[in-house]
Amino acid sequence: MPFSHKHHVGQLGIDCRYCHNGVETSSSAGLPATEICMTCHSQLFTNADMLAPVRASLVGGKPIEWQRVNGVPDFVFFNHAIHVNKGVACETCHGEVDQMPLMRRAHTLSMEWCLGCHRNPEPNLRPPQDVFLMHWQPSADIDQIRRQLIGVLDIHPETMTDCYVCHR
């Protein structure tokens, strides 16, 4: 089933957390349950052919089978909650989803790509209240803010490249 982040996020302004409701509290951001889609689509575009799989999911009680775009190997432990709560924005890893008619992988999410951030997280940090903002623009004093966030958010780059951080 085609899903447009460009439409839902970019045009309608739906926040990431509405559909990915585990992102702040769980290792998995979560994929939207049929009921999330039907919150709006029980009223809007109720007979659209494109939404037939959503309606069938609701009637049949079978979850929507989303096609995973971003993922890491099974031997990698990744926790969405720790990242967003430590000031790493969705946009940092997933790109500008508000411009994606169909979701695509914005970055490799390879070990080396992740290690780059783990070695030097400062350039990727935002105040936690800003992690869900698309096209966020840092203030002039962002370098000072990021240095403060390292301490305030209890971020320890000196141990973030230890193997056990991601391989458990």
Rank of each mutant, 00 (worst) to 15 (best):
H107P: 04
H94D: 13
Q43G: 14
S57I: 11
C16G: 04
G87C: 00
P73D: 00
F78T: 00
P138W: 02
N70P: 06
L51Q: 01
M111R: 09
E96I: 12
P32F: 09
V76K: 05
T34W: 00
Q129Y: 04
Q137C: 08
T159D: 09
E96G: 12
D162T: 00
C163F: 07
M1E: 03
P2E: 15
P73K: 08
E158L: 11
I155G: 03
E91F: 00
P101F: 11
V97Y: 00
R68Y: 06
R68D: 10
D154T: 08
L31W: 06
D141K: 11
Q129K: 11
D98I: 10
P157S: 04
A33K: 01
E158K: 10
C19F: 11
R55W: 06
Q67E: 14
G13M: 08
C166D: 03
N120A: 08
V23I: 15
T108F: 07
P138E: 13
L44D: 13
S28N: 06
F75C: 02
T108P: 04
L102H: 11
V97T: 06
K6N: 15
V84A: 06
P32L: 11
D49S: 15
G87R: 05
D74C: 01
T108W: 08
M100Y: 09
D49Y: 14
H167R: 03
I36N: 04
H8P: 00
C117Y: 09
V76S: 12
A140N: 13
P53H: 11
I145R: 07
E112V: 04
E122P: 02
R17T: 04
G60C: 05
H135M: 03
R146S: 09
D130S: 11
R104Q: 14
E112M: 05
A48P: 04
H20G: 07
V54T: 06
R105F: 02
C114L: 09
A56F: 15
C19I: 13
N70V: 03
P128H: 05
V88S: 03
V131N: 01
P2S: 15
H135Y: 01
L44Y: 12
